[in-house]
Design a protein around this nucleic acid. Structure first.
Lengths: 182, 182
DNA sequence: ACCTGAACACCGTTCAAGT
DNA sequence: ACCTGAACACCGTTCAAGT
């Protein structure tokens, strides 16, 4: 007994993300993922449980996709970088990104990002009892923009215009924070 | 020839929305909708084209679900009412609501709501060349919140706390507008 | 330990046939 | 004009069997 494993959880998730990027979320079928790995669909079950678990794994991937900014940077730069990273992730994986709305913000991977935002907000001077709510608001705003862009709600508008919108959104967030500090 | 129609586009969409509310978006299958109408799945095709068109119809339903506020009301109240209506729609139809991100904002039904917001923003004193961008920002913020709430991203937080978050978001939007007017 | 083949219930969709 | 029956390719998932 014992047989060299052809695939594992990581390769399955890699393949699933690739399929999602090429053919959209609906294209992520057990058979499509299996075919990309040169394996039968049934082989996947040992590694990812079932399809729902596979999608959960995909969402996890999104949130660990980008590095968190160095703690030594000023808080405003850290916040800006996190926001831009989230937006870039949405552009890279538009099919999967919508699933983020379903992910409770208390999940371990979600906490990783959330805590980084908490730190930045504290450093910005947001009073402790306001930190959690402020994070929820800021994250919701950025997530809404990234999801809109990724899913195509902004239509065929040129990139430069969408970038300008995003900059305006950054200003709004900055004002929000300034108001929270006082 | 000629036979009394048992169903039509409207009844199919009604049934689909009911199924979505009860069993989620994945529960909306041609067979589930057909069963609810006491008809075979194939009977649906005459009335809604195919499944993709059925989902498009469902999204349209969402946007015509609520009345637009009376034009005679002050702009701030009109804006507030539209926002609250969108949020209520998300709570009523959480399964379908995420599809709104895929709907280009230039679609006829989307324009109905958008134009109402345009009017309110103009009346608020937002300069003409800023109206479109401001609407995009405000809609994105409200949509992001409503989608987060509907999809469960806020977790099991008590209703009262989510309401408080929404009020904070309304303040943010108000500040955004005040800044646009200057 | 890991993968496969056969099997099942379900899905979207078509097309010719019934009323 | 509207609905149905039969049929097809595809989907997720199980379970026993192979290496």
């Amino acid at each position: 007994m014992g047989r060299p494993a052809k695939i594992d959880r990581a390769t399955v998730l890699d393949a699933s993300l690739a399929v999602a990027d090429e053919r959209g979320l609906d294209g992520v079928t057990m058979q499509a993922v299996a075919e990309r790995l040169d394996v039968t669909p049934m082989a996947l079950y040992r590694h990812v449980g079932d399809k729902a678990a596979l999608l959960d794994g995909l969402v996890e991937r999104l949130l660990t996709d980008f590095p968190l900014p160095d703690r030594s940077l000023p808080w405003a730069e850290r916040l800006g970088e996190i926001g831009r990273s989230v937006r870039a992730t949405a552009r890279r994986h538009p099919g999967v990104f919508v699933l983020l709305f379903r992910l409770p913000a208390t999940t371990p991977v979600a906490r990783r990002v959330r805590d980084a935002v908490y730190d930045a907000l504290r450093e910005a001077g947001v009073p402790e009892e306001e930190v959690a709510r402020t994070e929820r608001l800021v994250s919701t705003i950025v997530l809404g923009f990234a999801a809109s862009e990724a899913a195509g709600r902004f239509g065929k508008r040129p990139r430069r215009e969408i970038d300008a919108d995003y900059e305006r959104l950054e200003e709004v967030v900055a004002q929000l924070l300034a108001a929270s500090v006082r």
